[in-house]
């Protein structure tokens, strides 16, 4: 396996930031109550992670070693703030819904973790790919959890898609039932769902390795 496909495989599956490394649980548990919020926060995380990885990788050789952490924090904070402003300018209603958790992207350990572990030691192309793939790994677990929790917890799927797609999204909502299993929407439900996901991943796939 060459270096690039190894990075891709690491990010999406083998070193998945959520299922294996258990990083970034705070935003994961907070926004995975519905598909829309999970998807939008996942995409923003993907963007911030890739962009910050690229920038940190570019300047890594020009930096004093003691300045590494502050630099990473500043770069990540900048991208989080920028995406916050962009969201406020173009997707205000969505921002109204997930704005509180947007700032939480910064507390996502995946970002600082990748910057520290991978980016400081690797060239730009590798870092960019790593950021993208780790973001993708975060995104698919987040979307899966959002879908599960929305389907079982509220009995709907794709509700409020107009926040993301505009008027086209109005009729995308699928209603399975009017009553949902309330526990899954509440915070403990997030832990239970995540626990079950990790357990099933380990049960199904660990034997092969």
């Amino acid at each position: 396996m060459n270096r690039f496909s190894q990075i891709a495989c690491d990010g999406i599956w083998r070193q998945n930031p959520v299922l294996v490394q258990l990083l970034g649980l705070c935003p994961l548990l907070a926004v995975s109550t519905s598909f829309v919020t999970a998807f939008s926060l996942g995409v923003i995380t993907l963007f911030v992670l890739t962009a910050s990885n690229i920038v940190i990788s570019i300047i890594r050789l020009l930096l004093h070693d003691a300045m590494r952490m502050p630099t990473q924090i500043i770069v990540i904070a900048t991208f989080v703030t920028l995406s916050d402003i962009v969201l406020q300018a173009w997707y205000f209603e969505l921002h109204h819904r997930i704005g509180l958790f947007l700032a939480l992207i910064f507390t996502n350990c995946t970002l600082l973790g990748r910057a520290e572990i991978f980016t400081t030691r690797n060239p730009i192309a590798n870092s960019a790919l790593d950021g993208f793939m780790m973001g993708l790994g975060f995104l698919w677990v987040l979307v899966l959890m959002g879908s599960i929790r929305e389907t079982l917890g509220s009995g709907t799927l794709f509700s409020n898609m107009h926040l993301l797609l505009g008027p086209i999204g109005e009729n995308l909502e699928i209603t399975f039932s009017t009553k949902g299993f309330l526990l899954l929407v509440l915070p403990p439900g997030a832990f239970i769902t995540l626990g079950l996901l990790i357990a099933s991943k380990n049960y199904l796939f660990n034997n092969q390795e």
């Binding site: 300047i59 020009l62 004093h64 502050p70 630099t71 900048t78 920028l82 402003i85």
Partner: peptide, 18 residues
């Protein structure tokens, strides 16, 4: 001092872009 300078410039760029 050059490496510290990078940090200052970077901070400045971040501040300006936001």
């Amino acid at each position: 001092s050059l490496k510290l300078f990078t940090f200052v410039v970077l901070t400045l760029i971040c501040g300006i872009s936001i």
